[in-house]
Amino acid sequence: MNIFRFAGDMTHLISILVLLLKIYATKSCSGISLKTQELYALVFLTRYLDLFTDFISVYNTIMKLVFIASSLAVVCCMRMHRVVRRSYDKDLDTFRHYFLILASFVLALLVNEKFTFQEIFWAFSIYLEALAILPQLVLLQRSGNVDNLTGQYVFFLGAYRAFYILNWIYRYFTEQHFSRWIACVSGLVQTVLYADFFYYYFISWKNNAKMQLPA
């Protein structure tokens, strides 16, 4: 464990807490893409298949449980909660995310570390996570205005993978045989996808104005 990775995990945790705060405090999920939340739930469920078979550390197990539970809780809340689900932007959240699932799965079958069930699902979860934010970014683009908590949620979600890239660079120089090209390339793509969001987020922060994404 190094500081970059710990910072990344904490940033990821903060993004989840901000999302939960937004939904429970405002009793609204406007501006949140249900499809992105479903993709993230799938990412965690397929990445942490080894949750009960390989014990790495208490921290690792607890964080995995938190990520799985929180992503499922948000999906259930957005689908079932009678007040929250009324504020869901159903007609804006129309990204065909099934293509992202299919593309990630096909890529995982072609590019993986080992052609085994667990490795293929691990690679699938890595590729899917890189693309999972797309429905959310498209939804924000369409809805134009980004409320503070949603903007902070997406910002921290993007920042966490940037910390992981620093973690991979650090581990590359401090550990032998550190082969994780799948995660590195995918993590880079994931962070680049946030580039324009980060730009507009920084502009709104600099002008202390409400964040506006060009329609």
């Binding site: 990775r5 990821h12 080894d50 390989d54 790495i56 690792n60 973690n167 799948i182 995660a183």
Partner: peptide, 10 residues
């Protein structure tokens, strides 16, 4: 087999 190092990450 030892868990390949990437798997100790979240």
């Amino acid at each position: 087999p030892p868990i390949s190092s990437i798997k100790d990450e979240l």
